[in-house]
Structure formats: structure tokens, C-alpha cells
Amino acid sequence: MEAFTAVSYIGAGLFGLAAIIPFWMVLAGSLTAESALSQRGYSFWPSPFSTAAYAAIFSGTRVWLAYGATLFITVVGTALAVAATSGLAWVISRGLPRLSRGLAVFSYIPMLFSGGLVPLYILVTQMLGLRNSLFAVILPIVVAPFLVFVQVSFFRGIPGEILDSARVDGAGELRIFFQIVLPLSKPVLAVIALFYAVTFWNDWFHALLFISDSNIYPLQLVLHNMISNLSMAQDLAGAGAAPLYQIRLAMTVATIGPILLAYPFAQRYFVKGLTLGATKG
């Protein structure tokens, strides 16, 4: 084995470990009894083992409300996002003179230039009156230009003959899109849906800006408030003296858990999406 290959194994191995270790530490910490955690800090193996934190947070209502809010944002947001993105991407990929090019530029400009925080804040709170609505978290990020272009590059690969034959049979644009294009596009639909789902699941900035009603705090916002304020952890627990540090870690696990569980199944779609996006460039 050459030196470079050996170095590669070690380097990639170390990076891989570094990527995983924080997850393990937080998981182990969340299962370590509060007394040990607060005296010895993090350890690689939970001892003494304790599920008190999970029992505490899941017996309260806060976590369930937060899951509800996050799920709503993720599911509704992803559905809207995929619908809007697919429709636009299809029209761009049709290569119609002026229209497609114009829409491509129209979608590209927001990648370069943005109005920034203040106008968005005024728009959402004053003009649309969406303060304390979960749609205030969903709508500002419902179309990602990058994913539009990922989908365009997939749509361009659909053979024109199929579409032409449908046209000869008299199918309209809507019919072609829904009955021919979408069924052919399941792989790319999965890709962009997953990218959107992760974005919505992880979003906390818009929640921080627009949501002040703690009953509809999404998970990320609950977690954020716990960083700055430990008493928030007390609020999470059902009753009695709560293991505060342990709860913070358990809440972290509860927040990333669903993503980590879905990751093994979803990973190849993400890789595919990035590959589509990259070869487009």
C-alpha cells in the first residue's frame, strides 16, 4: 500500500469519527444519571444508566406540542414546496423561448440579491399578519432556487418523444405534467422533498422571529431557549425535581432523532440530488 493511500484511510477515518462522536456523546450523556453528569461531565459510556430525562420530558406536554408544531411545519411546508418547485421547474425545463429563460433568471436573482431581515419582518408581521402562525415559518422558505435548478436538470433528461406523443393524442399541459412527467420523476421528487423536509425540520430562525406563543414553539426553538435558559428545561418536565442537564441532552436527542433514523434510507437521495446539482454547474 502506498503512503498516500495509507494516509487517506487514516484521514478519512478520523474525519468520519469526528463527525459521529458528538452524536454519541450527547446520546450517552442523555442516558447518564444527572448526579454523575454534573460531577464528572460527559463520558463515552452512560454510567450510572438513567432514562429519567426521557421519562421527564415525554411525560410533560411541551415536547408533544413541539413535535406537533415541527411536524406541521415539515409536512405542510414540504408538500407546498415540492408542488411549487416542481411546477416552476417544469416550465423552465420546457425550454420555451423567452418564457423559460425569463423564469430561470427570475428564480436565479433571489440567489444573488435579497431584501434582508427588516423588509421580511415587516412583510410577515405587518402586511401578512402572520405573527404566531406556523405559516410564517413555512412561507418565507417555501421555494429554494437551488432545488428548482436541481429539478430542472432532471426534467431536461425526460425524452421529448414521450411528451410529443402525448401532445399528438391531445393531452394538455396539465395532463402531461401530472400523468406523464410526475410519475417519471419519482426519484427527483424524493430528493427535493427530503432536502426541503430537512430545511423545515431544522429551521429555527423564522420561528425565533415570528413565533412568540410557546404553545406552538417548534422543537428547534425549544432547544434554543434551553441553551440560553436552563429553567426552560424545568418547564419541559412534567412534575417534580427535574434532571436539568440531562433533560437538555435528551431534548437534543429528541430533536435530531427522527433525522438520524431517516438518514440511512434517505442518504442516497441526498447524494443523488447533490450530484444532479453539481453536474448541472
Binding site: 407546498l80 416552476l88 417544469w90 423564469l103 427570475f106 431584501g115 399541459e173 402531461i176
Partner: peptide
């Protein structure tokens, strides 16, 4: 049909971008 398909995203960009 094409207009209908592109409309939601166009509205999004107009309003939020």
C-alpha cells in the same frame, strides 16, 4: 396549464423575494 404550474412559485418569489 403552464401558467398554472408556475404560478405558485412565481407568487412566492414576488412576495417573499
Amino acid at each position: 396549464g403552464l401558467v398554472i404550474l408556475a404560478a405558485p412559485a412565481i407568487v412566492f418569489f414576488l412576495v417573499f423575494a
